[in-house]
Amino acid sequence: MPDAPEYKPVEDSVPKVDNAVAVGENLSFQRKWWRFERAVWVFFGLIILADVAGAFGRGPVAKAQQQTDSLTLHYERIERTTTPSTMTFQFAPSAIQQGHVHLFVSQSVIKQLGAQRISPQPEQSILSDGGITYTFPATSANALVEISLEPALPGVYHMETGVPGMQPIQARVVVMP
């Protein structure tokens, strides 16, 4: 024998007045919601403005520069996950020694910030404590090296770079989801 169906008495939660249509309108809630909606639209506008400014990466606010006697680093302090960007190293004449420049980059640049390729190709890459030291042939001042980045995961990462034996540059990079 099949199980009997379960029954529940009909209870209309909306009071019926003067045989009017039982709508269940809640205007006080709705007015609160409309106020909330207006606030949300303002918030959306602010988010878009912040985005255009680069507060979430890929804009003027995100771009940063740090300089020492031997090196100028152009980078983005706010990156986005799986979005390509370029970190540029500009060497001062004092960094060039015997036709070569050496550049140390910490492991976080390679791993967390997702270094994809380095241009120009280094003559030599040496694994050193906490990072890699690249060697490039260089004859002129203001030599440029670029590292293409594509971070895989969001987070806040600390990086260090510099010409070995000279003042290093330390930076914090925020990777947005």
């Binding site: 309108e25 809640n26 809630f29 709705q30 409309w34």
Partner: peptide
């Protein structure tokens, strides 16, 4: 949300329509 009356007895609910 909740159901909202738009027209009731030949009268529009102007604010509801606008919002």
């Amino acid at each position: 949300g909740t159901p909202l009356m738009l027209l009731e007895g030949n009268t529009w609910r102007a604010l509801t329509m606008q919002r």
